[in-house]
Write a protein that binds this DNA or RNA. Sequence first.
DNA 1: AATCCTGACAACCGCCATCCG
DNA 2: CCGGATGGCGGTTGTCAGGAT
Length: 256
Amino acid sequence: MGRSPCCEKAHTNKGAWTKEEDDRLIAYIRAHGEGCWRSLPKAAGLLRCGKSCRLRWINYLRPDLKRGNFTEEEDELIIKLHSLLGNKWSLIAGRLPGRTDNEIKNYWNTHIRRKLLTRGIDPTTHRALNEAAQDSATTTISFAASANIKEEDQKSSIINGLLGKDSKKPVQERCPDLNLELQISPPCQPQQPSEPLKSGGRGVCFSCSLGLQDAKNCSCGIDTIGSSTTSGTTNVGYDFLGLKSGVLDYRSLEMK
DNA sequence: AATCCTGACAACCGCCATCCG
DNA sequence: CCGGATGGCGGTTGTCAGGAT
């Protein structure tokens, strides 16, 4: 069946925006605000698709955009948020004032991916590359593949908190005084005894990967803080979300 | 100087979720 | 409740600038 096109493509411009088009769009939104994107182009005298106008405004023309290079702090925050949220660029952008989802997505694909790869970290799984390679043959702590229902619930709790959704289990709404550190503390998953304990080549329990568990007291045995890099191999564990180092307090991650 | 290659980023496309009559 | 309209999102592509050859 398929949907009707969002606009009359035959009569719309495509490609790069001209200065005049930008000016028209800015002037219109300043005068009328962000209203109905579908009717905006016609009202503003633009031969553009409404979606195109929205994208141009959101990603480029909005006055509150920061632009310019990402700072080291922003880099690390993006990495941490991505390790929790995955490719939820709009959610990640929500934690970086003045940055857009498109900008972060592009920055991730062009800079951070490479940065993580040079650290020996798989940018998709946020785990050591050689460990990620083993995953095809071994059981992992992957959220998606997890057979551990509690882990799924815990992740959902975190994500729902970030989304600010009216979840059926609105943890923060229902239990405002609940100590979330307890709420999301997962059970420690000891390593398989037969698994050889070689550097960078083993899994980490979910607690340690989140930085919630003091690895020294955990049977997985990985020290997530101060992960050492030896002979080019980066330790898998790092301070996930800054929960241990205090860089980021996950309890402040709710969305508006 | 010319050509090719690569990286960066703006913009587009298609799908999904939500809204609303 | 249903279906169309719309907004929003993530993946992908196109274009251009700068560096390498």
